[in-house]
């Protein structure tokens, strides 16, 4: 059994506990709680999932199933800045394959790999719901439209 360890600060633990009580049923807070863990650790380790499982009174295999199901959750770390590039049909028509190449060359890493300094990782994502502004980017959970070479260069420079 993956031993549930408590890799969380007291504030983080309080935040997780909040999600166990926020909805009418405990288990309804699971996805939100896992989103927190992903934000804090930039991935979800089995130990952390086991801890969350215990908090929510759910079997570990259930929580691990949820972790591995949803694309937002990763089992290996993302960069400090996680950049998503939409490859949905409209963004693809608008040139997202070229932007993928641009992200790779600008950041110097392949998709889903992390830059050496840990600052970045990028990945292709399915439709981000910004089809009229393609190619769309999701930069740390925030949508940005009209990706261009310049915009990508600026992100690489400015994001800490």
């Amino acid at each position: 059994m993956t031993e549930p360890s408590a890799p969380f600060t007291p504030e983080q633990e309080a935040a997780l506990r909040k999600w166990t009580q926020y909805y009418p049923y405990k288990q309804m807070g699971l996805v939100e709680a896992l989103r927190c863990v992903q934000d804090w650790h930039r991935h979800i380790k089995p130990e952390a999932a086991a801890y969350v499982a215990q908090l929510f009174g759910l079997p570990f295999n259930h929580v691990w199933g949820v972790v591995t199901f949803f694309p937002t959750f990763t089992t290996k770390p993302t960069g400090k800045n996680r950049i998503g590039l939409c490859r949905g049909l409209s963004c693809w028509l608008a040139g997202s394959p070229q932007m993928a190449k641009r992200l790779e060359s600008t950041l110097g890493v392949a998709e889903k790999e992390v830059t050496e300094d840990g600052r970045f990782s990028w990945e292709e994502m399915e439709c981000l719901g910004a089809c009229e502004q393609g190619p769309a980017l999701l930069v740390n959970d925030r949508l940005q439209g009209q990706a261009t070479d310049e915009k990508i260069a600026a992100l690489a420079k400015e994001l800490k």
């Binding site: 079997p59 570990f60 591995t68 199901f69």
Partner: peptide, 14 residues
């Protein structure tokens, strides 16, 4: 999950 309730196996990824 249902019979032994020991939960060792899962369907992971998708």
């Amino acid at each position: 999950d249902q019979v032994t309730k020991t939960h060792e196996l899962g369907i992971f990824s998708r």
